[in-house]
């Protein structure tokens, strides 16, 4: 039923949806939006694969996508619930720049550059693979945005989502070449294992920070710019010129 609906969608819509979902993962900070984009991406990856492969194989992909998103949602919610217990917790979390140390303009510039690179790829490269041209373009886009997400973030949850996006892009190209059920099942298990490890790392990284904040109201990410400013100030033996509680630079 779902597969019929997905495969009835126009190819261009599937391709655009995949590209947009990958870009959202790489551009946004909000973990809920990121996970919704990931789930949407799994649906459209399934749709694109269903055009070339038997339904039981593509259903594995969809099932894996749902499980992976639920696992990541659990850890995201866990961290979010802890932040809710703190007044101004979310703002403090964003200020630590754990998700994206670089600002939105830089990320948007990256998006434009990647789009330019992908659309200027030589025709010979796009037609050299056995999969359809649209699939190649979309897969490359998704792979690159997966890598960009990994490169731009310091957060384990975001890194894990970036890795799953990368894996989705690769499987778009690889699964039609190796259409074995055993390989598809093992790749699915590997994706779930990536999600499990990511969930664990996300909780292990953020929960102690939040608990320390709850206890002292003054925890600082050691790799944040504020921590760097403090280290430089200490080195120069000058009084620190920022608010130690909220990390705001005063002068």
């Amino acid at each position: 039923m779902i597969l019929e609906l997905l495969t009835s969608l126009p190819l261009i819509l599937i391709g655009v949806s995949l590209a947009v979902s990958a870009a959202i993962v790489a551009m946004t900070q909000d973990w809920r939006l990121t996970l919704i984009s990931l789930l949407v991406q799994y649906f459209f990856v399934t749709a694109l694969l269903a055009l070339q492969l038997p339904p039981e194989m593509t259903l594995i992909k969809l099932l894996v996508g749902v499980v992976v998103t639920l696992l990541l949602f659990w850890s995201g919610q866990h961290v979010d619930n802890a932040l809710k217990r703190v007044e101004g917790g979310r703002e403090w979390f964003q200020r630590n720049r754990a998700i994206f140390p670089l600002g939105l303009p830089f990320r948007l510039l990256t998006l434009v550059l990647i789009a330019l690179v992908i659309f200027s790829l030589p025709e010979s490269l796009l037609s050299s693979l056995v999969v359809p041209r649209v699939t190649v373009i979309v897969a490359l886009w998704v792979i690159i945005f997966g890598i960009v997400t990994i490169m731009l973030t310091r957060d384990p949850l975001k890194t894990g989502v970036g890795l799953l996006v990368f894996q989705n892009g690769f499987e778009l190209l690889y699964t039609p070449l190796e259409p074995g059920l055993a390989v598809a099942a093992l790749l699915g298990i590997a994706n779930i294992a990536v999600a499990l490890t990511t969930s664990y790392l996300a909780v292990v990284k953020h929960m102690p920070m939040i608990e320390a904040w709850l206890a002292e109201q003054a925890w600082q990410d050691p790799s944040s710019p504020e921590a760097l400013a403090e280290a430089v100030a200490t080195l120069n033996d000058a009084p620190a010129d920022y608010n130690a509680t909220n990390g705001e630079v005063l002068a």
């Binding site: 990994i150 384990p156 890194t159 894990g160 890795l163 990368f166 894996q167 690769f170 590997a190 990536v194 490890t197 990511t198 790392l201 292990v204 990284k205 929960m207 102690p208 920070m209």
Partner: peptide, 18 residues
């Protein structure tokens, strides 16, 4: 707790190598 650099690096390389 808190420091996940080594584990995250391993996670990234494991997925990228496949």
């Amino acid at each position: 707790a808190t420091n996940t650099r080594a584990a995250t690096r391993l996670l990234v390389l494991t997925v990228l190598a496949l």
